[in-house]
C-alpha cells in the first residue's frame, strides 16, 4: 500500500546516498532472485529498491597480480564464463554455478547469495574456504571483512543499514592450491542444499598439505568454519586417516535442525561424507597445479 521507489545509481557513493535517503527500509537489488520472491510473498516491504547493477564496479571481474576482484552483482553465468577465474578457483565458480537453474544463473550474484544470509547459500562455504574477503561501502567509506564475518544468523548480516557489498577480493592462491565445493540435494538441480561443504588446500612440493580451510553450509544457523577439519588435513598427505579425522570434525562442527529438507542425523552424516569428498576433489586439483 505504501509506495516504493526504485533507483538505479551509477556509482557507489550515489548508492550509499540512496540507501540513506530511503523513507522506509531500503533493499539492495542485485540479481533479485531472492529479493523478488520475498517481495512477492510480502516478507519484505521496501521503501526503496536500490538496483546496483548500473554500477560498473559491481559488475566486473578483474585480475591483478594473480588476485581477483569479483563485483558483488556479477552473475553466476558470467563467473562460469570467465576462463581465468574458473581455472584458478574452480570450487568458487562451481559453488556459484550450483545455485538454481540456468535462468537463475543469468541473474544471481555472489553478493546477493551472501547477503540473503541463508545458512544453505551455496557459494558462501566456497568463498570462506578460499579465504575471500569482501569490500563493503557505507557512509563512512569502505571497509574489508572476511566473508565468514558477514552472516550473523539466518537472514541477518553484520552490515549496517546503509552499507552494501561492492566486491569480493579473492587472494592469489599459493602454489599447488586446489578448492572444491560439494552439496547434497535430493534432485540433480533446483534444490536448496541440505548440506554443503567447501574445502581449499595447498600442498608442499612433497605433497604434504600445508594449508587448508574447511567450511560447511546448511548445518548451523550460519556457515561453519571447521578448524579441526583443517587441522586434520594440515601436515598429512590427505590419507584415509586424515580424511576420517576430517569427517569426524565436520560432523562435530554441525549444529543442525530437523526440517523439511533433512534431519539432524542425516545432515551430520552427510557433512562428514561431503567434507571428505570435497577434500579429495580439492587434492586432485592441487596436485594438477
Amino acid at each position: 500500500m505504501t509506495s516504493v521507489d526504485y533507483v538505479a545509481p551509477t556509482d557507489v557513493e550515489a548508492a550509499v546516498a540512496a540507501l540513506g535517503a530511503s523513507k522506509g527500509n531500503a533493499y539492495i537489488l542485485a540479481g533479485g532472485t531472492d529479493l523478488l520472491v520475498q517481495l512477492r510473498t510480502g516478507r519484505v516491504h521496501p521503501g526503496t529498491i536500490v538496483d546496483i547493477k548500473r554500477i560498473s564496479e559491481t559488475r566486473t571481474i578483474s585480475e591483478k597480480d594473480g588476485a581477483y576482484t569479483i563485483g558483488a552483482a556479477v552473475t553466476g553465468a558470467e563467473m562460469s564464463a570467465h576462463k581465468g577465474l574458473s581455472q584458478t578457483w574452480p570450487g568458487i565458480v562451481e559453488a556459484m554455478d550450483l545455485i538454481g537453474s540456468q535462468q537463475i544463473q543469468g541473474r544471481a550474484s555472489p553478493g546477493g547469495n551472501l547477503c540473503n544470509a541463508s545458512p544453505a547459500a551455496d557459494c558462501v562455504p566456497a568463498l570462506i574456504a578460499a579465504g575471500v574477503s569482501c569490500t563493503i561501502a557505507g557512509p563512512g567509506g569502505r571497509r574489508t571483512v572476511p566473508v565468514e564475518d558477514v552472516v550473523t544468523g539466518p537472514g541477518q548480516t553484520s552490515l549496517d543499514a546503509n552499507e552494501f557489498i561492492v566486491s569480493f577480493e579473492v587472494p592469489k592462491p599459493a602454489p599447488r592450491t586446489g578448492d572444491a565445493y560439494l552439496r547434497l540435494i535430493p534432485r540433480t538441480e533446483m534444490d536448496i542444499a541440505v548440506v554443503g561443504a567447501g574445502v581449499c588446500l595447498s600442498l608442499a612440493e612433497d605433497g604434504t598439505c600445508q594449508a587448508a580451510k574447511v567450511a560447511l553450509g546448511a548445518v548451523a544457523p550460519t556457515q561453519v568454519v571447521v578448524a579441526a577439519g583443517a587441522d586434520a588435513l594440515i601436515g598429512s598427505k590427505i590419507d584415509d586417516v586424515a580424511l576420517e579425522k576430517l569427517g569426524q570434525a565436520a560432523k562435530a562442527a554441525c549444529s543442525p535442525i530437523d526440517d523439511k529438507r533433512g534431519t539432524i542425523e542425516y545432515r551430520e552424516k552427510v557433512a562428514a561424507v561431503l567434507a571428505k569428498r570435497a577434500a579429495l576433489k580439492a587434492l586432485e586439483r592441487a596436485k594438477a597445479r
Binding site: P186, R187, T188
Partner: peptide, 27 residues
C-alpha cells in the same frame, strides 16, 4: 521425492516447486 509435508500446526510446509520436488530434466 514428492510429498506434502505438514508441520505440527497442520500447515503445509512446502507449497511451492522449490520444496515440492517434481522431477526436472536432469533427473
Amino acid at each position: 521425492n514428492e510429498e506434502y509435508i505438514y508441520n505440527d500446526d497442520g500447515q503445509l510446509e512446502n507449497p511451492g516447486f522449490l520444496d515440492y520436488r517434481v522431477p526436472v530434466t536432469s533427473d
